[in-house]
């Protein structure tokens, strides 16, 4: 016998909701605007962080350049002037803001090209790699995770969970090296790096297949590490849902166990999973840096690696802002998806 026990604070709120039910379905537009506003604030915070991390923290970017090649004091001063580093901090910040607003991230020290041009060039390969990996990892992870939870403690569950735990413990870059060594270096099944073999005309079906061929090892690496996390998340949230009362109702109605799972348990377990899955998109992007480095995939990750080795501050700043922006947009997406999945958010 369980009695409805509501602490006073909640009871007061519940009373209000009792009266206020139904009349306040938040409009889609209002929700959208609120979420876009939140994303915009995050974006502004990224931009500000991008400035302060590189200017305020100890470590003068010009001094870093000076470390790597011999320079005279005049040359340094000239460089400082060139990058606007001799101006007051506030003026620098203002310049930085106006520049970013117009898509100007400065000029790369290493490449001698505008950072925005480089990013535009390296953007799509990264999207192709991470996008493919994300879709595969999410599909695989959620599917295997819900099966594992439903048959918890079965041999399947033990194998699936065990494998996931091992993969979860593997550094992405090492798995990349391992696959490269086995399938690229030793067996020669797949290319050892790059996005496309030389001498293939762009736009042909052959070109497309060749890119796919190059994509296999990097995608396997990223999927292997990330799907394991998703599997564990989905498994945990479905297990949490398994003792819910409405599942007993569904069983009492005469549903088969399969339908109880598909129609009732999984849609509810997806809710917390979606939030966590998108939260881990940041991890996926982080993985792109090392995977692209190992497989010489011409994407933003490799660009980041080159920016570190430079060191190339404007380039690093640019990739940092762009990576963060991608993730913020993905999370905005997650919020909209969540609203579709959960009526309690849709009609709150």
């Amino acid at each position: 016998m369980s009695t409805d026990v509501i602490p006073p604070g909640k009871a007061a709120i519940a009373e209000q909701q009792d009266e206020g039910r139904e009349s306040h379905r938040q409009s889609f537009l209002g929700y959208l605007l609120a979420k876009i506003g939140g994303a915009a604030i995050s974006l502004v915070m990224v931009v500000i962080l991008g400035f302060f991390a590189f200017r305020i923290l100890p470590g003068d970017p010009v001094r870093k350049i000076a470390q790597s090649r011999p320079m005279t004091a005049e040359q340094i001063a000239q460089l400082r002037h060139q990058y606007g580093l001799d101006q007051p901090m506030l003026a620098q910040f203002w310049n930085y803001l106006t520049n970013i607003a117009t898509g100007n991230f400065g000029e790369s020290y290493v490449y001698g090209k505008p950072v925005s041009e480089l990013i535009a060039q390296y953007f799509w390969p990264t999207i192709a790699l991470t996008g493919t990996s994300a879709i595969l990892a999410i599909t695989l992870g959620l599917w295997m995770g819900q099966l594992a939870a439903w048959r918890s403690n079965s041999p399947y569950d033990q194998v699936a969970t065990g494998t996931s735990l091992v993969l979860w413990s593997v550094p992405t870059f090492w798995l990349a090296l391992l696959l490269l060594m086995i399938f690229g270096g030793t067996l020669h099944w797949f290319p050892t790096g790059g996005m496309v073999s030389t001498g293939i005309p762009t736009g042909t079906p052959e070109y497309f297949l060749n890119v796919l061929w190059h994509l296999v090892l990097p995608v396997i690496t990223m999927v292997a590490v990330v799907y394991a996390q998703y599997l564990l998340v989905m498994r945990a949230s479905l297990l949490e849902e398994m003792s819910a009362d409405y599942l007993t109702t569904a069983r009492a109605k005469g549903l088969t166990e399969d339908l109880v799972r598909r129609r009732h348990a999984v849609p509810n377990a997806l809710l917390p999973t979606v939030t966590l899955v998108f939260m881990h998109i940041g991890g996926l992007i982080g993985g792109a840096v090392t995977v692209e480095t190992v497989f010489s995939w011409p994407g933003l990750g490799k660009l980041t690696y080159e920016a570190i080795s430079g060191p190339d501050t404007p380039l690093l700043q640019g990739t940092f802002v762009v990576f963060s922006a991608i993730i913020i947009v993905m999370n905005l997406f997650a919020d909209l998806l969540y609203r579709q999945l959960d009526p309690r958010v849709r009609r709150a």
């Binding site: 991390a53 998109i281 963060s324 913020i328």
Partner: peptide
Amino acid sequence: VLPSLILAIV
């Protein structure tokens, strides 16, 4: 949501 590895790199 920030990519922690990238921030750590920075």
